[in-house]
């Protein structure tokens, strides 16, 4: 696809003609991966230990790789990443949440990687346009999921301080988890109800083994005007985008 003016939003609701890829679905999955990748990248130079910094950035690079493939299905990857306005991003609100303390990052990883692993598993088993990508990505996300589960077990069943922080993080992010199971247009083969049941079952199991309690609150904010998939985002996302996009916007066309 050739370069498009800044407002690419209308064109994205249609199916990309060359590839028969449902553009809205590619964009939703791609934005999830891109935004979470950027958040994880923010740990560079700040992670609690060097080994963990490499682990988190390895995951970030996996996600960036997925994002590049997905966004390239829709248009020019750089334009989509660096020149869209906040409202044109369709990522889940969960992935845009700030890193917080390490427990918050791990809770966000746990919620998202279990979801992504189950979703890619379903997509890989089908024969849709996302099957080849999902078949490769499902192995990456299996590792992301394992990483998050291992840390959840250790933080939950660690010291009293780590237990409290991990529980607090799980509670704080709980209200962003309902949105994950909103059907995405173009992913018609996905069994969203089954996905949600499998996700809840996994979460119950991991949290129980980590001596944590499954949060009980609502899984979406009642006052929310919409969700990330509709381009409605939480306040920290604007600041994240400003940082992510400023170089490209300040120096258009700059290369290394």
């Amino acid at each position: 696809m050739t370069a498009q003016p800044a407002d690419t939003r209308t064109s994205l609701t249609t199916v990309s003609r060359e590839t028969d890829v449902p553009a809205a679905a590619a964009l939703a999955l791609g934005d999830d991966a891109l935004v979470l990748s950027h958040r994880l990248g923010e740990w560079i130079g700040h992670a609690p230990v060097l080994e963990e910094e490499v682990a988190l950035t390895n995951i970030a690079l996996d996600l960036l790789g997925q994002a590049r493939v997905l966004l390239s299905m829709v248009g020019d990857e750089d334009e989509l990443a660096y020149l869209r306005e906040e409202r044109a991003f369709t990522n889940l609100q969960l992935v845009e949440q700030p890193n917080g303390d390490f427990a918050h990052t791990i809770a966000r990883q746990l919620y998202f990687s279990v979801y992504q692993h189950l979703l890619y598993g379903q997509l890989a088993a089908g024969d849709g346009p996302f099957a080849p990508l999902a078949a490769k990505a499902v192995k990456e996300t299996a590792y992301h999921r394992d990483h998050a589960e291992q840390w959840t077990l250790r933080l939950g069943d660690g010291t009293q301080a780590s237990h409290e922080r991990m529980q607090r993080a799980c509670e704080a992010l709980w209200r962003f988890t309902g949105e994950m199971f909103q059907p995405v247009a173009g992913l018609d083969s996905v069994d969203w109800t089954g996905l949600e049941a499998a996700w809840l079952e996994s979460l119950e199991d991991v949290l129980r083994r980590a001596t944590l309690t499954l949060p009980e609150g609502p899984r979406s904010a009642p006052w929310a005007a919409g969700a990330g998939r509709q381009g409605v985002h939480t306040e920290p996302f604007g600041r994240m985008l400003a940082e992510m996009q400023h170089l490209h916007r300040s120096h258009p066309g700059a290369t290394w």
């Binding site: 230990v49 060097l50 080994e51 490499v54 682990a55 390895n58 394992d146 291992q150 250790r154």
Partner: peptide, 20 residues
């Protein structure tokens, strides 16, 4: 060599540090 809290995490850190 690397630091890790236990053997399972050491294995995972090793995967990230030495086999990427």
């Amino acid at each position: 060599s690397l630091h890790a809290p236990d053997a399972e995490m050491a294995l995972r850190n090793a995967r990230d540090l030495y086999t990427r």
